[in-house]
């Protein structure tokens, strides 16, 4: 047990959390606990007694963890990873990947680094997946709006679909707006006039 540091991962998205857990267990770290919110963090800390805490940077909840690292005399005091300034580059990489690490009760550096490297890789991978999924969703929504705007123009002006699209594009080009902005304005106006 003393050989594998126990790791607490704070991540709201359960799919992502599972992905990170898998990555860590592939790397040989089996003692991983997932916490989806910070509401019972103090209890969770005394229960699982982690050596390392990994937290998603995108969550405002990270500030709550700072509260604990500030509490003087607390039994389990998580300290942000790079407090001792050992490796600014690794910290930068972690932050770029959207991850911050806290170490509890001074685990040696040599045992933290491989965990962090693995976690960085997984975080980066899942961030990419997530942004691809978000981009696809946004593109789909934009296409729906543009289709509605085209439909409105086709009915109002009796033009073809291609002609309707060209009109939207032309309007967008003049003041340097995006096609989606013009389409959105048209749809909003039509909704208000309906």
């Amino acid at each position: 047990m003393a050989d594998t540091p126990s790791i607490l991962v704070i991540e709201e998205n359960s799919l992502r959390a599972a992905e990170i857990r898998d990555g860590l267990s592939l790397g040989g770290w089996s003692s991983v606990t997932i916490l989806e919110n910070l509401e019972c963090l103090s209890q969770e800390l005394s229960k699982t007694d982690p050596d390392i805490i990994l937290i998603d940077l995108a969550t405002p909840n990270r500030d709550a963890l700072e509260n604990l690292s500030n509490a003087s005399g607390a039994a389990h005091r998580p300290v942000a990873m790079f407090v001792d300034q050992t490796d600014a580059e690794l910290t930068r990489l972690a932050m770029q990947a959207g991850l911050s690490a806290y170490v509890v009760d001074g685990l040696e550096q040599s045992r933290i680094l491989p965990v962090l490297e693995t976690a960085i890789e997984r975080f980066r991978f899942t961030s990419q997946l997530r942004s691809e999924r978000d981009a696809a969703k946004r593109a789909l929504e934009e296409r729906k709006t543009i289709d509605r705007a085209k439909g409105l123009l086709m009915r109002a002006k009796g033009v073809s679909e291609e002609e309707a699209y060209q009109r939207i594009r032309k309007t967008a080009m003049n003041p340097g707006r995006k096609v989606i902005d013009v389409a959105q304005a048209l749809v909003t106006a039509a909704d208000m006039l309906a």
């Binding site: 940077l57 995108a58 963890l65 700072e66 942000a80 930068r92 932050m95």
Partner: peptide, 13 residues
């Protein structure tokens, strides 16, 4: 920035 801690770290770095 999503949190003060993240803002602080990015400023420090």
């Amino acid at each position: 920035q999503p949190s003060w801690s993240t803002l602080r770290d990015l400023l420090a770095l």
